[in-house]
Design a binder for these strands. Structure first.
Lengths: 216, 216
DNA sequence: CCAAAAGTGTTGGGAATACACCCATGC
DNA sequence: GCATGGGTGTATTCCCAACACTTTTGG
């Protein structure tokens, strides 16, 4: 589960009290029940940590099967990527906390590398889909959205170009409302929202695209 | 396992002799052994059908967990995408055959939708990576490569543009040799090869790319 | 009037498609 | 020489990044 908090991307981890990896931080998870599908299982595992309704997006990442990934014995685990919009602040259990992805504490099992995979996936999808909807609040100024993208991508993005790319693609639309300007003055920002709040690919083929509009 | 054969993309399937889905066609697969990782298991399953060395590329696709996917009872299956270069023609068991992906016979379980996922993945990666290496023979003319891309993508691509895109990205290089011209004459084609024969992303960010070369 | 913040106009570059044209070979 | 297939040159289009400039607010 990833969320942008205070302009930094964080991952939700819980601190293990028992061996193995006692004291290390782990991703939430647990065994699959007899008649459960993986997506349902993930939701169930997370429900013990937060309110699941706060998850704006969930997608399967990859399945890890290294026989040595758990020292207690063979386990096969399927990792999921979950995103929480930045305006929410779920109540967390005592052993659970948001950790900045750019300065992770010591992690248990192969969870560190799973977080790395999740990051790669998120960063790629920010570029060619509308996933931003799952990190952003319902409405926002371009400046706020920029902060979220910068936190998630890990590099600078200008508000100007971000706005133009997302508007041209029809990913964002203006709400017609404006935010109040800050105490230091400045023009009030227009508020925007994501047109769709489910995953859509907005930039399908970079190259080798089908010949212009002619059906085959 | 996918391969381009006679300018058409095919998938290797075997015909089930027993219930359930007797007579339908299925993807090769089987249970994971106690101390085996998934990639190894896939290789082992395929080894019973073909020579595994002929697999030029193998990558994990997704894990299916619908409790009803197998009428005999709950199974969880991780699908892989495997690619075989077009110049190879593996000897197949009697119950196994290459089936064209655009006219699949009746398939067992959820294997039809797995093939669809595999196709989407392959088509996307042809556009932003060098995966082509795993479908093409060691050397080839641009015309031959075009035929492979057209078969895999399912739409027309011109030799001119294919050549330019792949050369500019440094994915292809000329071998310096030329093919003999056909019986009808014509200029002999230059032969090319893929520079690398392992997966590389050649077109990372379509948009929202990091600010020009400045490190953060 | 000035500082601050938001938003628009404009330019320049790069990359991809499309199409015209030139090249090399067999018959 | 002509048909056939291969390859290059070039124009057009589109999209993105960069940056200058304008707009709108608070003090």
């Amino acid at each position: 589960m990833l969320q942008v908090r205070s302009a930094r991307l964080h991952v939700m981890l819980w601190r293990r009290a028992n061996e193995p990896f006692s004291g290390s931080w782990a991703l939430p998870g647990g065994p699959l029940l007899a008649d459960e599908r993986l997506g349902t299982s993930v939701a169930r595992q997370l429900a013990s940590k937060v309110e699941v309704r706060q998850l704006a997006h969930l997608e399967q990442l990859e399945t890890r099967s290294d026989p040595d990934r758990d020292p207690r014995g063979r386990t096969v685990a399927t990792a999921y990527l979950g995103l929480v919009p930045s305006h929410l602040d779920p109540v967390l259990p005592d052993d659970t906390a948001w950790q900045p992805v750019d300065a992770l504490p010591e992690t248990a099992f192969d969870h560190g590398s799973i977080v790395t995979s999740a990051l790669e996936r998120l960063r790629a999808k920010l570029s060619y889909t509308n996933v931003g909807f799952a990190l952003a609040p319902p409405t926002f100024s371009v400046a706020e959205l920029r902060e979220i993208y910068v936190a998630a991508l890990g590099y600078e993005v200008t508000a100007t170009n971000l706005q133009r790319v997302l508007l041209r693609r029809g990913v964002l639309e203006a709400t017609g409302e404006t935010a109040a300007s800050g105490r230091a003055g400045g023009r009030p920002a227009a508020l925007y929202r994501f047109v769709t709040s489910s995953l859509e690919v907005t930039d399908p083929f970079a190259v080798l695209r089908p010949p212009s509009s002619r059906a085959r």
